[in-house]
């Protein structure tokens, strides 16, 4: 949870006119003062440190198994060798079968993003724009629920699901992700929603629109960036989640997502680097693409106070 500010004017640094130019000149001067060479070299060292571990595993995933076991990935540059066998085995091999789990991850994630956003939008609208008795207290309560660690809810929830005979199905995973996403989603969307100018809503009211119509015709179009921010957040959270998936879907091969399978592989075959490396990248590829494509929205969401804990 938590927020830095709902300052949405902070953007990702696209220059705007002469003010920025002046800033640039100033910054250039500052850098000269700080020692441009020293500063850049520290930055470059950090960037390399942060990238090398992933890069090493990526190289490993395209090396033949025999090479991986007998020499380090850095020797690949002097004696390169390629194979797609690792990916092939990890995706379709009968013991790994990541393609099945890939589908599971996908099936889990889509509704777990759509449903909480819809519910949270409605609630956030009510909290921001419809006066009703007990609204303030209810909103504070929802806000406070962001604090509750998931751990505290898991076992009783699982007991309920078992009682209903729903345990180990997609339904419980969707429901759980939806519930756990709501406090943050409402808080974040409420932050955006209360900033919509009152005059817009009033004008629609004068035209005789009810709250449902205002919600769809006035609010939703304005909130597209906010929705995108939360959607990418929730997408990454659900796709990368291990705890919820282990608890509610861990035992079922037909429901468990990639993270569960990957963790299992890391536990049982921790020396099979040809499978682990390829498997890790199969699990990573979708969130990384989504992340790179929608980074702007992600940053905006972070700055608006959406850090799930």
């Amino acid at each position: 949870m938590s927020a830095v500010s709902s300052e949405l004017t902070i953007d990702d640094g696209t220059p705007k006119g002469s003010a920025i130019d002046r800033l640039d000149a100033r910054a250039a001067k500052a850098r000269r003062g700080l020692g441009s060479v020293g500063a850049s070299s520290i930055a470059i060292v950090l960037a390399i440190l942060w990238t090398i571990p992933t890069f090493g595993l990526l190289i490993t995933s395209i090396r033949p198994q025999a090479d991986i076991q007998t020499s380090g990935w850095w020797t690949w540059f002097s004696s390169p060798s390629f194979t797609s066998e690792n990916y092939h085995e990890v995706l379709t091999g009968s013991t790994t079968n990541f393609s099945t789990f890939f589908v599971n991850s996908f099936v889990i994630t889509i509704p777990s993003v759509l449903i909480p956003i819809t519910l949270a939008l409605l609630a956030a609208y009510a909290f921001a724009w419809i006066p009703f008795k007990g609204r303030e207290i209810l909103f504070v309560a929802v806000f406070a629920l962001q604090v509750v660690p998931l751990q505290i809810a898991l076992i009783p929830l699982l007991t309920q699901y078992v009682r209903w005979g729903l345990n180990g199905t997609f339904w419980t995973v969707w429901l759980s992700h939806t519930i756990f996403a709501l406090p943050l989603a409402i808080f974040l969307l409420h932050n955006f929603m209360k900033d919509v100018p009152r005059s817009l809503v009033e004008a629609a009211r004068v035209d005789g629109a009810g709250h449902v119509r205002i919600f769809f015709t006035v609010m939703l179009p304005l909130l597209v960036p906010a929705i995108a921010s939360f959607a990418i957040f929730q997408f990454l959270w659900v796709w990368n989640d291990l705890l919820v998936a282990l608890t509610f879907a861990g035992g079922s091969k037909n429901v468990a997502p990639l993270t569960v399978r990957l963790a299992e592989l890391a536990g049982t075959r921790d020396d099979q680097w040809h499978l682990l490396s390829a498997g890790a990248f199969v699990a990573m590829v979708v969130p990384v693409i989504v992340f790179l494509a929608l980074q702007r929205y992600f940053v905006r969401g972070l700055l608006a106070g959406s850090v799930k804990g």
Binding site: P53, G56, W239, N240, T259, A280, A283, M284, P287, V290
Partner: peptide, 10 residues
Amino acid sequence: AISLVGASII
């Protein structure tokens, strides 16, 4: 963007 499981393996 990476899962903690993926990061751990890396």
